[in-house]
Nucleic acid binder design. Structure first.
Lengths: 365, 365
DNA sequence: CTGAAAGCGCTAACAT
DNA sequence: ATGTTAGCGCTTTCAG
């Protein structure tokens, strides 16, 4: 591609074919020539070095504008050892909450002069490791990690002695990992949700949750149990279904639960993806949310807000999650002495018609 | 960052402070030294140049493995003039269909050795232009463009004489733009949807659509009208609401339509984001989908699939959209002689309970 | 088949 | 204040 057609063509034997409108990369050299100054002067002007005379500055700027010159990022990166690029690894881009997380991270990154390279491992821990590696080889300045459901040992190892600032979102890290972290306070939100259901009269409450080795799932289970304990009750252990975050798991467990003779009167889906599955399961068994059972989920997705009846959810500020992650990275980039930090963001339960009615309902048919 | 601590330290005066576990970037030099060969030999082995002797190859590979050497992407990019990176500009990452588009693009890109740099302009045409620019400065090898609702003149100009392969998704381009394109056949799907409603007995059908300057919206409007024409009917022009893709527009228009004395008996939302707004509007006016009116939308989002009743939609293969976009770029990267191409992907209407019943309904109370 | 050396485009020490 | 020059880490001619 960049065959360069400046004086350095000495040894390049360009293919005789037509140039086919190839780009005309203006280099700093062209600017220097045009402004009749040295390369370094151009560089100084453009990097706003203090030691530049007014007239020089003007000549350079004029030439720069005239030629439409813009420094080559790659060359700058190589020379400066800094790419102004952040890697953002998403374990599951199909999860709608990530749109907000990405927006939050990117808005902040852009405002600080960073671009984000996004990759999606779609739940595959090997891809996690592969992409992490790729980020490093591409010399990103920092990495935001929201890894797959299953952790990768290689990723874990990389966190022990990171070569660039890392921030891990809502995941466990090895004991002495030297990385920043952002967590949602999922336990608190789930505790509120569970307490709300208990208060409305439910005791047969089911929780369908992701695996316990996943920090958010574990926290939610903890919050669920805490609410029971606070009420002096014990959850029916048959109703706590711990498995996976995949919608199908939610569907299957919901079906199984609802077909029991002693079926639960309320179900909590422990993630937004599980909620879609749970809804499928409920529909499959012909029960009706808000009449036959109460339902609550996590994250304020369209589906929850617009469902009839609207579904109660534990919400969190996803945009902020991305933003904070980015901040934690960039603050360490700006100041290498800055310590790693852990930030916990609040969650909050929002009661809606799917659960906000007394149980048993006034007229149960 | 990369202060380098090899023999080249001649003029670099390293800060006396502690090295703070800085990365140990193994370079090709280290490998050459360890293998007792020249730099170029290492390079040849690793780039799989044919002219390398067996023993040499083995020595180099051994040294490479021993040191855990990996070529620096940035340096390779600068030298080769190729970054193996594709820019993907998304105009609206909040749209859930993009998760699939991204997956499609990225899976293919990865399989071909490319990474994707994703940016989100969130509907802002100025950001579109800015990001496009950024991509170019970062020397991406190709660009996938799914721009904001409103076009940017700067972006349009860039398409006239592109310096790298472009592919534009579902957007108009200037008359002699030299770019590949991927379109959805939105007219066809919308025509099917409208015909289906007419067939079920509706004539008072409303369409809430994005602006006509947006290609997909325009196509959908065309399909809508075509279906009426084919049935020998004329759509009520009061029922065709052309404005924006924002959910609020959908909500407001739905409310306005449903409050009319001569309200429509069926509504089609011309995009998945509009559908969320339309549902809000319907709920706000206390009408019930599937009883008081029929409803159809676009794209097979969770909301449509899991709503009660399930909502009929015009579907398309979003994953494939991303994949094809990527293919179109990479095929031109692999073969610079490859022509620009335009691919149209099919859409299909899927009837569900929200519309798949005769009108007027058997028992209308 | 191998090594020496030029140089991608830029920045920053060094030397005026 | 400005110019000269040495590289960043790599690939690729060119010479042997």
């Amino acid at each position: 591609m960049a065959k360069s057609k400046r004086k350095s063509v000495k040894r390049v034997k360009p293919v005789p074919g037509p140039a086919l409108a190839s780009a005309t990369p203006v280099t700093i050299r062209d600017v220097a020539r045009k402004a009749h100054v040295s390369l370094s002067s151009v560089s100084r002007v453009l990097t706003e070095h203090p030691d530049v005379s007014r007239p020089m500055q003007l000549r350079v700027l004029k030439a720069t504008a005239a030629l439409g010159y813009e420094p080559d990022f790659i060359a700058q990166s190589l020379r400066r050892g800094v790419t102004h690029t952040l890697g953002f690894l998403i374990g599951d881009i199909s999860n709608p909450v990530f749109a907000d997380v990405i927006r939050g991270a990117e808005d902040h990154a852009r405002s600080m002069g960073y671009a984000i390279m996004l990759t999606n491992s779609e739940g595959d821990p090997e891809l996690d490791a592969k992409y992490l590696h790729l980020f490093l080889r591409r010399r990103v300045d920092g990495i935001i990690l929201s890894t797959a459901e299953t952790g990768s040992p290689q990723v874990a190892r990389a966190l022990l002695d990171p070569t660039v600032p890392f921030v891990v979102l809502d995941r466990d890290v090895p004991p002495n990992a030297r990385v920043s972290m952002v967590f949602g306070d999922h336990a608190s939100g789930m505790r509120q949700a569970t307490a709300h259901l208990i208060e409305r009269g439910h005791t047969a409450i089911a929780l369908i949750s992701g695996p316990e080795h996943l920090k958010p799932a574990r926290e939610r289970i903890r919050g669920f149990r805490a609410a029971f304990e606070a009420a002096g009750l014990k959850p029916n252990s048959d109703f706590v279904r711990i498995g996976s975050l995949r919608p199908n798991f939610g569907r299957d467990q919901a079906v199984d639960l609802l077909r029991r003779a002693d079926r639960p009167t309320a179900i909590i889906a422990g993630s937004n993806r599980l909620l879609t599955g749970v809804l499928e399961g409920i529909q499959q068994t012909d029960f009706v949310v808000g009449r036959d059972l109460a339902l609550a989920g996590c994250d304020d997705v369209d589906l929850a807000r617009l469902y009839r009846p609207p579904i109660s959810v534990v919400i969190r500020d996803q945009y902020k999650l991305g933003q904070v992650a980015c901040e934690l990275i960039i603050e360490r980039l700006a100041n290498p002495e800055a310590p790693i930090r852990t930030v916990t963001l609040p969650t909050q339960f929002v009661a809606r018609a799917s659960s906000d009615f007394p149980w048993p309902p006034a007229q149960s048919n």
